[in-house]
């Protein structure tokens, strides 16, 4: 009788212990071999698409640009500079992708013809853009003398702490008339990204 009780207790003990072993074994298995995944506050390709879409829309709906007609003297807009003031690495080819996509969107739309605008990229930058956009033909007007300069500046406010990191990005576009030095159009796109967890764990 004493033995039977003992067996029941043992069985009960085992049954109670089993989940612990299972959990422990699973923890070990999970911990061993799972692939690290990058999860950062950096700008991503989805941001590129959203940003350039928004900026293209803003450009197209601008009052000054809207007043232009096909018979006006063409504006030759050069995608001049992309400036990275964030704490994120943005390789040269990616920088120009931000400009290249905007140029491609505006060039493909009716705006270019309707507003008499020619988009150019500094010839020395064209190979980078062509590679990123996977196009081969040099676009019309690439080597024309620009009348306007378009610049893009990326800024970020970075906060890091023991509990995570956040980056508030502001991407600012400006179009300057080279003849008068006046700012023709500007707009900005903002996004904030945050991740939780220790950065140096």
């Amino acid at each position: 009788m004493k033995g039977a009780v003992s067996y029941r207790l043992s069985a009960f003990g085992l049954l109670r212990l089993q989940p612990c072993f299972v959990v422990c074994a699973l923890c070990s298995l999970i911990g061993c071999g799972a692939a690290p995944r990058a999860h950062t506050t950096f700008l991503r390709s989805v941001d590129l698409v959203e940003m350039t879409d928004t900026m293209a829309q803003s450009f197209a709906s601008d009052e000054i640009i809207g007043e232009r007609t096909p018979s006006d003297e063409p504006w030759v807009i050069s995608m001049y500079r992309v400036v990275n003031h964030t704490n994120q690495i943005i390789p040269e080819r990616e920088k120009w992708l931000y400009m290249g996509r905007l140029r491609a969107m505006l060039a493909q739309s009716d705006i270019a013809k309707a507003r008499s605008i020619i988009w150019i990229i500094p010839p020395e930058r064209w190979p980078i853009v062509a590679e990123e956009l996977n196009v081969s033909d040099e676009p019309y007007g690439l080597r024309m003398k620009p009348t306007h300069l378009l610049t893009a500046e990326f800024h970020a406010l970075t906060n890091t702490s023991g509990s995570g990191r956040s980056d508030a990005y502001v991407c600012e576009y400006q179009l300057v008339d080279l003849g008068t030095g006046t700012l023709v159009w500007d707009d900005k796109w903002e996004v904030k990204r945050a991740v939780e967890g220790r950065t140096y764990d």
């Binding site: 923890c27 911990g31 799972a34 690290p36 990058a38 999860h39 995570g164 950065t199 764990d201």
Partner: peptide, 30 residues
């Protein structure tokens, strides 16, 4: 180095590995 940079900038990379590291070996941590 770009890969290192991106993963180093990932917060909480070892968040789910603490228990495994206790029960197992510290090397299971990334």
């Amino acid at each position: 180095l770009g890969r290192s940079f991106e993963l180093l900038s990932t917060a909480g990379l070892n968040k789910d590995r603490t228990i495994a590291a206790v029960l197992d070996y510290e090397g299971v941590r990334i």
